[in-house]
Nucleic acid binder design. Sequence first.
DNA 1: ATTGCGGTTTGATCCAGGTCAACGTGAATC
DNA 2: GATTCACGTTGACCTGGATCAAACCGCAAT
Lengths: 247, 247
Amino acid sequence: MSENRALKTVNLSVIKTACSNCNLRELCLPLGLNSQEMAKLEEIVSTRKRVKRGDLLYRAGQPFEALYAIRSGFFKTDVIMEDGRDQVTGFQMSGELLGLDGISSENHSCNAIALEDSEVCLIPFDYLERLSRQVPTLQNHFHKVMSREIVRDHGVMMLLGTMRAEERLAAFLLNLSQRFVARGYSPAEFYLRMTREEIGSYLGLKLETVSRSFSKFQEEGLIAVQQKHIRILDIPGLKRLMNHTPV
Amino acid sequence: MSENRALKTVNLSVIKTACSNCNLRELCLPLGLNSQEMAKLEEIVSTRKRVKRGDLLYRAGQPFEALYAIRSGFFKTDVIMEDGRDQVTGFQMSGELLGLDGISSENHSCNAIALEDSEVCLIPFDYLERLSRQVPTLQNHFHKVMSREIVRDHGVMMLLGTMRAEERLAAFLLNLSQRFVARGYSPAEFYLRMTREEIGSYLGLKLETVSRSFSKFQEEGLIAVQQKHIRILDIPGLKRLMNHTPV
DNA sequence: ATTGCGGTTTGATCCAGGTCAACGTGAATC
DNA sequence: GATTCACGTTGACCTGGATCAAACCGCAAT
């Protein structure tokens, strides 16, 4: 919680040019803004925050004040029922926005937990609304980001409602792969930041089922797994597996 | 598709006062607006559209141009995979907004189908964005509506990911009940507009399981079912059933 | 009144994935 | 370099809900 605030002014000046220099700008909120608009956005995105692996960025029930753009690192979000059951609702990586769920009730409705040491840019929401009234491009892009989250959620519903275990896992791997590509990483080789249990929670499966499915994929030559290290050997194969009607 | 356009001016004048007179205004987009702001909103919500039972309001892939506020009636939205499997992603009733999924890609990403003869108010999206730049209350409320949809989706994920068949159905009934209450109807007695198969699709269950669970609830005195007519006899009982840890 | 038909209920059986349990593995700590 | 601990793998068995099948219900068309 205690952050190093020495050299504050230097720090701020560095940050003021952040968005325009940020190599995530094409994935993140600034998408589509001209340099003048970007400068305005930079004024409101003035603070960064480090979150250590395992720490919560925010917790369900806390008052909502800001959105967070992931500058680096990896997060999960989850919701917890009164009886203790929990569900991972998503995994978020650099360039993605956290906190959209908090707008509706002005309280966060889920927990956001860093799965590795991470850094986020803080976007005070009232400033964002004010600015997006002045900058139609930003307004429209923000609406698209929210809508995209809704579409993603529908995809997860489809996955949870109609797909079998192996289809779910294939879909999950392909989705990760795609998102890594968008960030300039290999589509075929990556480290999973989450445990089998977290994957299982997200996919509506038990960790043993996740583990068994990984092993099965490996036997079939679709992937090579060693703990958290994944190499996808046959992307088309996984795609085929994913939408093969279940009997 | 061909609509009666006779008496257009009369029609418009009638509609111009629509929002402020509409008894759904506290559930719908106008929430929180003063009369002046409401008047501006009414200018852009100038058209209504009837949708017959079974007809599509919009179809996945169609260009997105407007949101739809349900004036009366009942809808379902669903997504369809290439292999034909489909998933009902929601049931919408009066005062709720349809079409948010289309903003992100400027194409609708799901189908919206009327489950009874319905009427919707058409809200051209570019107008809405323009107006919400001028009316902060509207802007904020629209953001809350989108966020609420995200939170709802997380609830469905929780349901699909962690709950057992009977818990899902109990949650479903309680949710409908609540929403009927908000509209001034009985919390305990209503007609289901959707089939067992559609309920099943939404809840990630087969229609037989839905039917059996209804019968079980009836045996236990929790509800009285006769086809589509439901009477809830024991709301606390359903609530208890819903979050009783599964073993 | 009869037929047809979409939707619903109920029974019998099956199986994907859950549950329980034992063992492996590798990174961190002393 | 031994110990610990969280995480992962694998096997054996069990069960909730899927599947298959038959009958039933209500209403719309004739």
